[in-house]
Amino acid sequence: MPRYFFDTYDGDQFVPDSNGLELPDLAAAKREAQRALADIARDALPDDDQRTYFISVKNEAGQMVLRAGLTLFVETIVGTSAA
C-alpha cells in the first residue's frame, strides 16, 4: 500500500509530515486531506478575520500529488440590525 505525507501550512507555520499514512490510493489521500483541513480549522481558529490553511500531499518519492486549501473569514456587516 502506498504511503502519503501530509505537510500543513496555516499562513504562519509550516509543519512537515515525516511519518505519513499508508492509504490505498490518491482518492483516499484526498479524503484524508479534506478531513485534516476540517480538523485544523476547528482546532485552530484564527485571531484575525481571515486565514487560509493548506495541505500538500506528497507520495513516497517526495513528489507533490495533491494540494488542498481551506479559507476561513469573518466579515462584520456594519449597520445591520438584529431581527
Rank of each mutant, 00 (worst) to 15 (best):
P16V: 06
D12W: 11
S18D: 11
P24A: 15
F6R: 03
L23W: 01
D43A: 07
R51I: 12
G69H: 06
D49L: 14
K30F: 00
D10K: 03
Y4I: 09
A38M: 06
R35Y: 01
R35N: 14
A61G: 12
A61H: 12
A33W: 01
F14G: 07
A33Y: 00
I55F: 00
S56P: 07
T76I: 05
A68M: 13
F6H: 04
A29P: 13
G62R: 15
E32W: 01
D47S: 12
S56C: 11
L72V: 07
A41C: 05
Y9H: 09
F54C: 12
L21S: 13
D47R: 07
M64S: 11
A61M: 13
R67Q: 14
E75M: 07
E60W: 01
I55K: 01
R51L: 10
A33Q: 00
G20W: 03
P24C: 09
V15D: 10
A27W: 00
A36T: 15
P24S: 13
G69E: 08
A28D: 08
L21N: 09
A29L: 06
R42H: 07
G11Y: 00
R31I: 04
A41H: 05
G20D: 07
Q63R: 13
A36Y: 03
L23C: 01
L26W: 02
E75A: 11
L23D: 04
A27N: 12
L70H: 08
Q34M: 08
E75F: 00
D7G: 07
E75Q: 14
N59G: 12
A44N: 11
P46W: 02
L72T: 07
L23I: 06
A28V: 04
V15I: 10
R67W: 08
N59A: 11
A41T: 10
